[in-house]
Design a protein around this nucleic acid. Sequence first.
RNA 1: GGGGGUGUAGCUCAGUUGGUUAGAGCGAUCGCCUGUCACGCGAUAGGUCGAGGGUUCGAGUCCCUUCACUCCCGCCA
Length: 575
Amino acid sequence: MVFLSGWINKKRDHGNLLFIDLRDNYGITQCIIDKDNSNFNQLEKTQLETVIQIHGKVVHRSKETFNDELETGEIEVLIEKFLILGECKELPMPVFSDQDYSEEIRLKYRFLDLRRKKIHENIILRSKVISFIRSEMEKLGFLEYQTPILTSSSPEGARDFLVPSRLNHGKFYALPQAPQQFKQLIMVSGFDKYFQIAPCFRDEDARADRSPGEFYQLDLEMSFVDQEDVFNVVENLLVNTFKRFSKNKLLTNKFPRISYSDAMIKYGTDKPDLRNPLVITDITDIFFREDVSFEIFKKLVKNGSKARCIVTKKTKDKPRSFFDKIDKWSKDEGFSGLAYFTIEKNKEITAKGPVGKFFSKEALEKIMSTTSAEVGDSIFLACDKLKDLEKMTSLARDKIAQELNLIDNSIFAFCWIVDYPMFERDEKTKKIIFSHNPFSMPQGDIKNIDFKNPLNILAYQYDIVCNGIELSSGAIRNHIPELMYKLFSIAGYEKDQVEKKFSGMINALSYGAPPHGGIAPGIDRIIMLLANEKNIREVTMFPMNQNAQDLMMSAPSEVSETQLKELGISLRGKK
RNA sequence: GGGGGUGUAGCUCAGUUGGUUAGAGCGAUCGCCUGUCACGCGAUAGGUCGAGGGUUCGAGUCCCUUCACUCCCGCCA
């Protein structure tokens, strides 16, 4: 006699014989009862998804009734009696089904949605990956420390979630965007290897790969290290994790390193998908030549625009519609379009296509040598102001590769993006601003940094990218207060402002701070890659919708007048 | 804040050029069925066509407004 408890996943009712698929966390077991049993009628009437306990006998199935798709497919349970442990009303959505459902109903009835196989497995995978990461980090000598959830609002970066203070009317806590300052303080406190599966809160708009509100990072920081030490730790960790939890191959075990400036030229973005073999080449110079008469591009280039191109190999036989489709796509995306031609050779090199006639033989040969294009290849050309051009060519590179089916989905292609600039010029205000983390250490000999040309200063700042998805960014930190004041002054902050805004940090760095650095890979995105999901909600147990609402718990919600009064808050009413 | 997509039965969807009483599968209810594993067969119930307004003899279908969900841009150091 066995006891088996679970949910009624599916019934197959033969009138005098009833099959029940009973489901629990581990899988499905077929149970069976016939009309001779006095419980038959009641079980026959019991709704799907009712939780029952079966008392019965495990028996081997006859060979012709084996079910290869079930782990328990060679046995079944003969039901003697059963108990209803949890009744189930009529379901708002089926649990046993491969159909897709609207997000609205899935999120409202998340507890039902989570019973379904794929997402149930994703959540279990998430738990196992996190557990694995913890044990790997501990093996490497890292210790997990918790940092505050209620902290202070920081002026840089994302919009903060604010929490009003009851004991300090008119003042607010902020939820941490990341434990950035705390982990640096942990280093200053003499703990030298910190990690945390850290919740991070940012009040910014959602995307498919970006939860609204909250997400998790593997936050880590180390003392007395340089960039290489951080790379070693993270590279090994990610290689081990991805090999353990996915069948997909890694393109390279050693992550290639690409400088930010190279990435922006070759891929138009600092998160390139390296599964895609296409590269972008700058050919602005071509349009200054006398023997090139493509006047639209020539005029744009003269006015400061850049011209770049993407070469596709052996596409001479692609129909005109292939090229036009990509040009049309570009215009639909709001860009200025992609010109194209295919390189041919009869007696001499010529270009076939709408704009081919504008290029002389010599100009074509020059293009071929700069781009390594060969006869039979095609070239897509774009011309625009640098930022727009980068954006378009980056998207075009993905689009063209998709159209040509060049991306191998069974591969993980990691890379490091390194040598980020410390500063950049704000396009609107024309002011110099920090391009990433203001606490990053500038590269080079600290005594000889060229502060006169701040845009040339590089930082020890790095990102990990996998398959075009940004997994994390990190940096070696600036632990020298004087240098920090100097850098902040370039970005327009006076010393007293810095002291006021970052008092905790600056103060701490003044009392013997070790050199330190770290990184923070995004847990949710790692799980997305491992589970092969395009949407972060598929790997999040209780996600909010795009408008940052929890449809199951009805959050956010209104609060009582009493609660507001205690906090010293009055609402201004709806806009 | 802006742009795109979707919205029809509990769920997933179809619905032609604007034309009679809005359909199907799953689910529910009832009946038949002892080896199914998406069991099978028959019947019944179930609709504010997201909401509001307009055009028209007539609107699920066309127009306007609006709401919800979603994808993208901005934003996310």
